[in-house]
Design a binder for these strands. Sequence first.
DNA 1: TAGATTGTTAATCGATTAACAATC
DNA 2: TAGATTGTTAATCGATTAACAATC
Lengths: 211, 211
Amino acid sequence: MKSYKIPEATIARLSVYSRYLSKVEQQGLELISSGEIAEGSGVSPAHVRKDLAYFGEFGTRGVGYNVKELHRHILKILGLDLKWKVVIVGVGHLGTALAMYRGFRDRKFEIVSLFDVDESKFGKVYEGIEVKPFNDLEKIIKEENVDIGIITTPTSSAQSVADIFVNSGIKAILNFAPCVLNVPYNIELRNVDLAVNLEVLTFNIASKQKK
Amino acid sequence: MKSYKIPEATIARLSVYSRYLSKVEQQGLELISSGEIAEGSGVSPAHVRKDLAYFGEFGTRGVGYNVKELHRHILKILGLDLKWKVVIVGVGHLGTALAMYRGFRDRKFEIVSLFDVDESKFGKVYEGIEVKPFNDLEKIIKEENVDIGIITTPTSSAQSVADIFVNSGIKAILNFAPCVLNVPYNIELRNVDLAVNLEVLTFNIASKQKK
DNA sequence: TAGATTGTTAATCGATTAACAATC
DNA sequence: TAGATTGTTAATCGATTAACAATC
């Protein structure tokens, strides 16, 4: 693996390629070209080849890529050959939706538990995942060696959840609360702001209409 | 408004600034500097000023920005002074979560209806929003002049939902199904792939560990 | 005037794309 | 050899950042 910095957009695209390859593999196709992957993923062929080139040579010139092999390589690159333990804090609609989200379950993510402060939710089970008291969060992260924490609480609690994550030795945080979290540089943090997506669309529509 | 192309990232940041300004406005603060907005939004002060500069001059040199005024300006830029009608197709966990999502309701988005093919869901009401038969989708979009359609169906149905959206004259689509949709160039399309976010994190953790 | 902070320019940095040599 | 497609380079494009003139 080469050592220059790899764009985050490249990683996001690799994830998209892998999902498409998974579909293609199920269809029994053996060989695929960068052009076909590009079409199936909504990017350019040059993009596909460049993205892959960061990590090695996976194809055969004049021929293409072996679907199965390339798929396995990409999963390995993304760390998806490993099993990842995840907890979700905040058992609202979004939290439970994520707990049951097929896109997470199809990969090797294991959702260890859900957590909430609301006593009335304790013990509830969603698709085999139990809701536990927020007070047990730190203990369980340590015991189970949880890798990733997902925050789906209201904004007001997000930072304190993040603090507990950090103290418990979690490695990465996926935050759905629309706020800026302070975490040490060695913790991977990714914010997903659902409302931003709608607002980019309204901007685009509105600017068209103004013309 | 100047006419050179505005980066999409700028729009996404404006949305974040507006949320922070909303908070600051509630606290009763009147003046704010680019540095403070930057800190509250997790970006650099230069970024804040550059982003705003695409749209005009909203501050006073040596002084800063009037919180209320700037907030109103940004909302206007994003098209959030208007009311937007939204439908959600696919009443799974994610669909209902989005229907009830505060981040959407706090803005001026009006969720007109939810739609599903499953008869047993027809007539159910989530926070005042009724689930209607998928067959009525086209009719209602036209009748109600719906602006934005959200897709939270399984991947296999996503394209056919998009086709109906397009035929019904919807202006923008927010797609949560992990697939590439084909829509005419004049329809605004935005894909949100929740699993990609987790996979960017696993890549980052995995590459650290390999070092 | 001195201090502060914006608006804008120019420099830097990084990502995308086109093109082609390598090679099956 | 001719055709095809990768891997890689170099050119282009665009976004970020630093720096500073403008100005309150």
